[in-house]
Simulated scan of single mutants.
Amino acid sequence: MPRGDKSAYTDKQKRQAEHIEDSYEHQGLSKPEAERRAWATVNKDSGGGKQSGSGRNPSNR
């Protein structure tokens, strides 16, 4: 998967990133910076990409 490919994310994660990006843009950030920060936030919150199965919760490690 090439860098920047968002196909590994769920629809919910993509929607979350879009809303976060809009919020950053509203605060005056440039589009590329807003997008970068939005995806960083989604990755921080969810661990990034699609994950399934037991034992995937980072708080259980």
Score class of each variant (00 low, 15 high):
residue 22 D to A: 14
residue 58 P to C: 01
residue 47 G to N: 02
residue 7 S to N: 13
residue 54 S to N: 00
residue 51 Q to T: 11
residue 35 E to I: 05
residue 50 K to H: 08
residue 6 K to W: 01
residue 41 T to W: 08
residue 19 H to M: 13
residue 44 K to C: 05
residue 9 Y to E: 06
residue 2 P to W: 05
residue 60 N to F: 00
residue 14 K to S: 08
residue 53 G to D: 00
residue 16 Q to Y: 09
residue 38 A to Q: 08
residue 22 D to G: 12
residue 49 G to Y: 04
residue 48 G to Q: 04
residue 39 W to N: 08
residue 24 Y to E: 09
residue 30 S to H: 02
residue 29 L to I: 00
residue 15 R to K: 15
residue 13 Q to C: 06
residue 23 S to N: 14
residue 35 E to P: 00
residue 41 T to E: 15
residue 34 A to G: 04
residue 9 Y to H: 07
residue 21 E to C: 14
residue 49 G to V: 07
residue 60 N to G: 00
residue 5 D to E: 09
residue 5 D to H: 11
residue 7 S to Y: 02
residue 46 S to I: 00
residue 12 K to A: 14
residue 2 P to K: 08
residue 28 G to V: 07
residue 30 S to I: 00
residue 22 D to Y: 06
residue 16 Q to N: 13
residue 23 S to D: 15
residue 50 K to A: 09
residue 15 R to C: 03
residue 49 G to A: 10
residue 6 K to V: 07
residue 3 R to M: 10
residue 45 D to Y: 08
residue 26 H to T: 10
residue 39 W to F: 13
residue 24 Y to F: 14
residue 22 D to N: 14
residue 40 A to T: 07
residue 14 K to T: 12
residue 5 D to A: 11
residue 53 G to M: 03
residue 42 V to D: 04
residue 36 R to S: 14
residue 3 R to H: 09
residue 56 R to Q: 14
residue 45 D to E: 14
residue 46 S to M: 03
residue 8 A to R: 11
residue 3 R to P: 08
residue 5 D to T: 05
residue 22 D to K: 15
residue 21 E to P: 00
residue 54 S to R: 05
residue 19 H to C: 05
residue 29 L to H: 05
residue 48 G to P: 03
residue 14 K to P: 04
residue 47 G to W: 02
